[in-house]
């Protein structure tokens, strides 16, 4: 399994997003907040003539602290015809998975267990591969 992964940091931990699903990585300038939406949805940001829904990955995983990122990087993915910008602490390079997806005995711990597909080995060590759909569904209280 030599899948390409977008290496990023979410809530201070190394994580990976399947790179094939990522259309682009952008630095978000302006976010138009949408009142009334759950916290993990930061708002909308324009990308060319499209409006992206900005999702804070840390909040979506159920952590209390939002993503802390100086340049507000986000990975753009498409789910069911809608475009989302997944905001992460930082986004690094694309690298190859060195191992298959493996489950960790005892689980990944809070939040990660639900939205993580499992662990993969990479050049820089083990990372959690996140499930894009789960992130977009938001933390469990809201997803339920």
């Amino acid at each position: 399994m030599n899948d390409l992964l977008l290496m990023c940091t979410i809530a201070g931990r190394d994580a990976a997003i399947p790179a094939l699903r990522v259309q682009t990585v952008l630095e978000i300038d302006d976010i138009t907040p949408i009142p009334g939406t759950p916290d993990f949805i930061c708002g909308l940001t324009p990308l060319r003539s499209q409006a992206l829904t900005v999702v804070d990955c840390a909040l979506a995983l159920g952590f209390d602290e939002p993503c802390s990122s100086p340049d507000r990087r986000a990975a753009v993915v498409e789910v069911d015809g809608h475009l989302y910008a997944l905001m992460v602490d930082s986004a690094q390079d694309v690298s190859e998975a060195r191992s298959d997806l493996v489950a960790i005995p005892g689980g990944l711990g809070d939040g990660w267990q639900r939205a993580g597909l499992g662990m993969v080995e990479t050049e820089t060590g083990p990372v959690v591969l996140v499930d894009i759909e789960k992130i977009i569904a938001g933390p469990p209280a809201l997803a339920a």
Partner: peptide, 17 residues
């Protein structure tokens, strides 16, 4: 159209640029 998570608020019918 807007993302389902925003639709759930039932406050918005769509977005425009």
């Amino acid at each position: 159209p807007i993302a389902p998570a925003i639709m759930q608020t039932k406050l918005y019918a769509g977005t425009t640029l």
